[in-house]
Design a binder for these strands. Sequence first.
DNA 1: GAATGCGATGCAAGCGCATTCATTAAACGA
DNA 2: TCGTTTAATGAATGCGCTTGCATCGCATTC
Lengths: 346, 346
Amino acid sequence: MDVNKDLPRAARAQDVAKAAGVSTATVSRAVNSPDKVAPAVRDRVLAAAAALGWLPHAAGSALARKRTSIAGVVIPTLGQEVFATQVGAMQAAFAEHDITLLIGCSNYDPDQAAQQVRTMLTRGVDALAVLGQIPKPGLFEVVQARRVPYVITYGSAPDGGHPCVGFDNAAAFHTITRHLLDLGHKVVGMILQPTLHNERIVARLAGVRGALAEEGLGLRPQHLCEGEYGIQAGRKGLRHVLNADGPRPSAIICSNDLLAIGALLEAQTMGLTVPQDLSITGFDDISIAAELDPALTTMKADNAEIGRLAAGYLVSRLQGNATPSEVLIPPILINRSTTAQPRKRS
Amino acid sequence: MDVNKDLPRAARAQDVAKAAGVSTATVSRAVNSPDKVAPAVRDRVLAAAAALGWLPHAAGSALARKRTSIAGVVIPTLGQEVFATQVGAMQAAFAEHDITLLIGCSNYDPDQAAQQVRTMLTRGVDALAVLGQIPKPGLFEVVQARRVPYVITYGSAPDGGHPCVGFDNAAAFHTITRHLLDLGHKVVGMILQPTLHNERIVARLAGVRGALAEEGLGLRPQHLCEGEYGIQAGRKGLRHVLNADGPRPSAIICSNDLLAIGALLEAQTMGLTVPQDLSITGFDDISIAAELDPALTTMKADNAEIGRLAAGYLVSRLQGNATPSEVLIPPILINRSTTAQPRKRS
DNA sequence: GAATGCGATGCAAGCGCATTCATTAAACGA
DNA sequence: TCGTTTAATGAATGCGCTTGCATCGCATTC
């Protein structure tokens, strides 16, 4: 009866050491640097650990080691696919380095975000990512003071100087407009989600305008519809744009996939054949986009990649490698079936 | 120069104590139980803490207190709305108790799930939730051994005896079938995602059959289509079911919303008017379901509620309250516009 | 005015683990 | 065969914080 099996307390390294007839130092080494321990002893220790159901307690470890192997991520909400995807990718990338993710949601509230960041620091996270949010100026001062590597994604900080992973919204919409121009479209319309307080959307519009301007074309006001966010807004937007006076657009650029889906459904309701009668593009490549009939031509700002890059950056920072402070990934065109050459018309 | 401002090391309670002219005990009390400290002293301590940018280090706290205020959650993937929603709700519910969420993804792999659970325990989580996954038998032994409260959601354990929060799939589909029967439908079809290794789907089918049987009706084999998961499968399924010999179903029950969306789109493509010509139902109430035209009649197994309940259960366990071991929430019918009385036919 | 009580505070002992340093045993070379 | 290097291990210390217990000062109370 050298071991008190009926003792409710969880096993500690001490207990394992006693059971294996070694010191706690050896137990620690057997687990963390197995090659520094004689094979026979190591096996004995691991066997004892297994028998006692011992799992090293990270708090003690963190204290002694001065790191937690926990990374924090603060996001607006988990309910949106783009963020969920990024977080999922980060989780996977961190897992390869035995780093676990602590998550906090800000609900789009800068104050909550700041609070979450503070919580993360308290938890002793080794690294921190803030997703999809323009942080309050000064938010990162405490983070910097603690020398905790951090990164923001899906949008850059207004005051600059923060490491960030994202993509260029204007360039992305330049690309998608270019795609339509190359197909021969001359008159395009655009359906937008609200631009108020959202520089990303403003940039998207600018990207479209810029590409059109290169061909001496423009976006007529009546072909530009800014509404809400969602499928119904897409439907309404399409009616608005197509019912405008003057030459009808042969292509509609939507600022996100839900709008595009709405536009697509409405076009079909109106008896138009997509893409022969009308080309439609989205943005995001949400999972449903590929499933539609016809499948939506859209752009994929690879959110998984953003997550991976952000995690990778933080990991390399943890390993002491300096890396560039701003990474932009190129969104890629997913050329499916809602775009085609415009029908010849007299 | 009583404080070394230029010392890179982060401030500790010690430093705050010195700056405020008190002991670390008082610092701790000022933060954790402010009423046990004289107001003047408390203010002095908090001011010193703020000045030094001190944030208590959770590892030390966890060690001394024997709890971490961290809860772990293991999910198959963040990329699916149902899980993301549950996690989001849990996060919010835990946040009210100053508990932060540590997440791990299993990628639907029982071994990874087990690994994640072990990681969570190592991190010293105070509570643990496993979402949407039938755990390997014995998985929870270590958890139980450590007396860590846990709960599984969105499915019950085969070996039973585990606390769980979810809903009764059979009852849910009984309800939705009942809804159609009450509208007067006599011939219904069903489109299913794969039933293999997925008891939840089997239960859904059983629920439909049970409700039909109560009216002396049945589900004809040719009106039952089991395919893949997704919109295209829904389209294909609908064609299959409607092209079968014999009386055409006037209503189609789909085992999830994506299948229903596919069926809806296909019905419209076929020139059918939904719901007049054909009623269609889904399940899950994914966010897009409400946006379609016509909006999808479906059932909402309130995943946010599941998350909240799971978190609430764990919190009450942490507070020492015994609670029922199995909670079933009633999924609710979201009666939108894809169901109606069947058209009279001769 | 002295005894009593109580609130406010400090002291010090850990919490569980990693790690430095010293020690011992083993392996090696000559 | 003996000194010397190397590998394996243990004892002891500290990471940053909480908390039981002892202490002190002050306001009650008789």
